[in-house]
């Protein structure tokens, strides 16, 4: 799922300080799972902001809500009768949700309340790790199910580089060397022959290098 972290409170305070009526909108999707932007986080942020502005002697009405998903028009529509009561909205959804909310309510000020980080997995509660960079052309079949684009710091398709040491990346000993992982797994799978095939330059046009991407599935459309 998409992983995000809450923005520092100071940053959000600074964004909303010139308003008096603010709505905080959470998202029950990915950001709820990583505890960055679900209803609970909405409530905590709302309470924190109320406490801050109260002690600062500033009038501030803060309301809280959360939507099933902010990346879907039909859920965003649920705000249509109330959004006009607010001068600004803080969305705790990922960058997609923030943008879609702003797109749906075109004349409303919408601020992000989280920093969207990556697509990843939960290693344990509170520890998330990147696994996919959505290059648009999956090569996992050839790399032992471990992605060199997401997991090698240099995105090498013919790795590992000369900086791999004891299974760790030259960038940081906290990072596993993606190519060590690939090698180990290919060995287990009996597919080491795949390692010796030079991999041709990749077509990055399906990645973000092709410009903003869009999927049109005619088989699904009405």
């Amino acid at each position: 799922m998409i992983k995000a972290v809450p923005k520092p409170l100071e940053e959000i305070i600074d964004l909303v300080k010139d308003f008096h009526k603010v709505l905080i909108v959470g998202c029950d999707g990915c950001v709820t799972v990583c505890e960055a932007g679900g209803l609970k986080e909405v409530q905590v942020l709302g309470s924190s902001l109320r406490l801050y502005f109260t002690q600062a002697g500033q009038r501030m009405d803060i309301d809280e809500t959360s939507l099933t998903r902010q990346c879907d028009q039909e859920y965003l529509d649920q705000l249509k009768d109330r959004i006009d009561h607010y001068e600004a909205v803080v969305s705790l959804a990922c960058g997609c949700g923030v943008q879609y909310l702003a797109e749906r309510y075109h004349d409303k000020i919408v601020y992000p309340g989280v920093d969207t980080c990556f697509m990843g997995v939960d290693l344990e509660r509170g520890v998330y790790a990147e696994r996919c960079q959505a290059c648009g052309k999956c090569i996992l079949a050839n790399t032992g199910g471990i992605c060199p684009i997401a997991r090698c710091s240099k995105r090498m398709l013919n790795g590992p580089c000369g900086g791999s040491e004891k299974g760790k990346c030259e960038v940081n000993p906290e990072i596993d060397c993606g190519w060590q992982l690939i090698y180990d797994r290919l060995k287990i799978l009996g597919q080491l022959d795949r390692f010796e095939q030079p991999v041709d330059p990749k077509d990055w046009a399906t990645s973000r290098d092709g410009g903003p991407r869009k999927i049109v599935r005619e088989d699904l459309r009405l």
């Binding site: 409170l9 801050y52 600062a56």
Partner: peptide, 8 residues
């Protein structure tokens, strides 16, 4: 930590 950042 929150309290320290919001003036309490």
């Amino acid at each position: 930590a929150i309290l320290d950042r919001i003036g309490l």
